[in-house]
Design a protein around this nucleic acid. Structure first.
Lengths: 169, 169
DNA sequence: TAAGATTGACTCTTCAATCTTC
DNA sequence: GAAGATTGAAGAGTCAATCTTA
């Protein structure tokens, strides 16, 4: 299934209807929102990985690169990266392993904490991050199919949900 | 990082600000929406897998079970499952393998197409699906932290985005 | 004891290649 | 040749256990 076929109806709206029929009307909208988020993540992750592949990146590693490029010295403790991205420490170790093997990042010991390590963006890493942002903006973040005012409204609702879910305060 | 720490600010709003500063103001909101969806998926997937684990299920396999339980005969071609869930055929094969090993599903040959196979829900599968829905409704789909009218509004916007992204017509 | 990082085992995902049947 | 399904390889995520240092 290289090109996922476009369905003629919305399977999630159908599931929501089923939820109401089977005795869970109060949970139907929550189910529909959660399932919609799962589906959209699959769609956008696939797009991101497609445009990043020629650069030797994945979306996970791209996020690490961007986090470092936005930091003051291009340097962050590994734990801080996991905290910001809300992923397991093991995932950060894995991502930094790959970035380091590709020469985009180096590991340094943390002068403030002998237990910790720092990830530091190399010059090559900064160039790759810049090139990746270029294609991501052009192919993934632009024109996601909604009017910009609608996109802003959607972001606000998603932020409310993330806050309620504990992503931030 | 067993308990992901709650950040005191919204890292995605901060990234959106950086996007504007670095010359991509038109892509900032698209970036923020896509990144928000990625983060929310991580959060809800973790919750779902936590409540489903005692039942021996994952969210991926739960979705297959629910799709079958909503079908007329509890039976669907594997390809149809992948189409509805928008996942690769290999993922369906994998999920059905596990469900079959656990006795929740059986594979049958498709009388209408010698190449295809059907997944059929067993009585045990139906019981497990029912129990799983019970806990999912109670622990994941209920009380996601927004007023129900807001949830409905969010679903509409997500549906618009899914439609634009090609999830359905 | 607790915290940061790493490793290993496991699951799910995709892609590419293959087998069978249309 | 095209389509449905399977297999194997690779990436990323989790959790549990471990090692080192605070």
């Amino acid at each position: 299934m290289a090109e996922p076929r476009r369905l003629r109806f919305d399977p999630i709206a159908e599931a929501e209807r089923q939820w109401g029929l089977h005795g869970w009307p109060d949970q139907a909208s929550g189910m529909a929102v959660v399932t919609s988020i799962m589906r959209l993540q699959q769609i956008f992750l696939a797009r991101a990985d497609t445009v990043l592949r020629p650069l030797g990146l994945t979306f996970a590693r791209y996020e690490v690169l961007m986090l470092l490029s936005f930091s003051r010295q291009g340097t962050l403790p590994l734990g801080k990266i996991g905290e910001r991205l809300q992923v397991n420490a093991a995932s950060v170790t894995n991502a930094v392993d790959r970035l380091e093997a590709d020469g985009l990042v180096t590991r340094q010991s943390n002068p403030d904490d002998g237990r910790g390590r720092l990830a530091h963006l190399t010059a090559a890493g900064r160039r790759t991050a810049s090139a990746a942002t270029e294609v991501m903006n052009e192919k993934v973040f632009t024109d996601i199919g909604m009017a910009s005012s609608t996109v802003a409204r959607l972001f606000d609702l998603l932020a409310e949900l993330r806050s309620a879910a504990g992503d931030f305060e």
